[in-house]
Design a protein around this nucleic acid. Structure first.
Lengths: 202, 202
DNA sequence: TAAATTTTGTACCACTCGGTACGAATCTAA
DNA sequence: TTAGATTCGTACCGAGTGGTACAAAATTTA
C-alpha cells in the first residue's frame, strides 16, 4: 500500500511500522500517564527493543511529545471539528459531546491524555507538565477566538464574555475527564453536560 | 503543652512530633502526587529516617491514607462546612468559593490533593487510585444528600434533580482544580464559578 | 543496678528506572 | 563480491526505588 520513494534508504531496513508503534505508545501513555509508564512498558507494547526506540523517537520526553501530536490529530480531533460549527451553541455542544464520546469509549482509556497525563508529576518532570499546560491553554485560546467571532456575528449576546465562556467550557471538559476516570458512565456524563449547558447565554 | 497521659510509654521516646511529621508529608504528597513522591522526599521533609517512618506510619500507601484523612480535616474542611449552609444555593456557593480559596492559596500547592494525587497512576498502584475515587464519590454523595434535603424543604424546585446537580458541582470543582494547576489566578477561577452558577435552578 | 522495651541511625537488600556501548545482522551502492 | 550504512538484539551502566536487618541508644519497670 506504500508508494516507494525514489530511492530506498541505505542500510538495514526497519522491522516495525513507525506509525503503528506510535499508536501503541499512545495507548500506554494514555492508560498509565507519563510518569506511570516505564520504558519497559513501552518496548513491550510497541514490540521493539530499547535502542530501536531511541533511534526512532528519541528519549522518553521526545516520544511523549510525538504521542501528544498523534493524540491531537486522532482521538482529540473532535476539538478542531467542533470549532468549525456554525454557531457558538453548536460549538459548545459538539465540544462537550465529543469529549463525552471519547471519555466513555470502551475501546480507549476513560480519561483525557492531557489531563491525566501529568497532573501528579514531580518537579523533576516539570518540562512535561509545562508542555501539557501549554497545549491545554492553546486549546482554550482557540475556543475563545471562536466565541469572539460568534459575538461579532451576533451569534452571542453583546454582553457575553468570550474569554469567560471559553474558560468555563474548558473547565467543564476537564471536570468530565476526572469524572470519567472515576468511573462515570456515558449517560451520567451526558446529564452533567446538559446541566452545564443551562449556564449558556439565551 | 501536652497533657501527660496516666503512664508514659516504655522504651525510648520518639524524637519527633507525629502530627507535625504528618503535615510535612501532606505538603510533599500534595505538591508531587503519590507517584512522584519518593521515600527519600518524605524522610527529608519530615526530618526523620526511614525505619522511624515505617514504625510510625507503616508503608507508603498507609502513610498516604493517613495524609488523606488529615487533608479532609484540614485544608478541605470547607466541604463539610459548606454542607451546613441553610440553602442549596448557599451550599454550592460555599463549595465553589471554598475550593477557589484553597486552590489559589499561595501558601499551598495549586491543585487538589485528591484530584492531582493519583490521576496518572499506573496499574501497579490501582489501590491508591481506587481509594481516591472512593473518597471523591463519598464527597459527591454527601452533596447529593444535602440537595435532596433542600428539595424536600422547598429550597430547590420540584423538578430539580439533586443527583445531577451534585455531579455537576463536583465536575466544576474538579475542573477548577485542573485550571488552578495550569496557573489560573483566583480572579479567573471566580469568573468561572460565576458562569457555572448561571446553570443553577431559579 | 539490671532487665525489658522501644526508637534511632547506619548500612544494606533486591529491584527497577532511563539510557547506552557494541558487535552481529541486513540492507544499498559500487 | 566488497565496502559502507543502518538497524537489531544483548548485555550492561549508574542511579534511584521501596523496604528492612541490626546493633547502639534511651527510656520505664523491677
Amino acid at each position: 500500500m506504500k508508494v516507494k520513494k525514489s530511492i530506498a534508504p541505505m542500510g538495514r531496513p526497519r522491522a516495525f511500522d513507525v506509525d503503528e508503534a506510535l499508536d501503541r505508545a499512545l495507548q500506554v501513555f494514555w492508560r498509565k500517564g507519563y510518569q506511570g509508564t516505564s520504558l519497559s512498558d513501552l518496548t513491550r507494547a510497541m514490540g521493539i527493543n530499547r535502542p530501536s526506540l531511541y533511534a526512532a523517537f528519541g528519549d522518553k520526553q521526545s516520544l511523549f511529545r510525538k504521542v501528544l501530536d498523534r493524540y491531537a490529530d486522532g482521538p482529540a480531533a473532535y476539538v478542531r471539528e467542533a470549532l468549525n460549527k456554525p454557531t457558538a451553541r453548536a460549538v459548545v455542544e459538539r465540544l462537550l459531546g465529543g469529549a463525552i464520546d471519547l471519555l466513555s469509549d470502551p475501546r480507549t482509556p476513560q480519561g483525557c491524555l492531557t489531563v491525566q497525563g501529568a497532573l501528579s508529576c514531580g518537579e523533576a518532570i516539570d518540562a512535561v507538565r509545562q508542555e501539557l499546560n501549554t497545549r491545554r491553554a492553546a486549546g482554550e485560546a482557540a475556543i475563545r477566538e471562536r466565541f469572539e467571532r460568534a459575538k461579532a456575528e451576533g451569534d452571542l449576546p453583546k454582553d457575553a464574555n468570550p474569554g469567560d465562556l471559553a474558560r468555563y467550557v474548558a473547565t467543564v471538559m476537564h471536570g468530565l475527564s476526572v469524572q470519567a476516570a472515576g468511573g462515570a458512565s456515558r449517560a451520567e456524563l451526558r446529564r452533567i453536560a446538559r446541566t452545564a449547558l443551562r449556564a449558556w447565554p439565551q
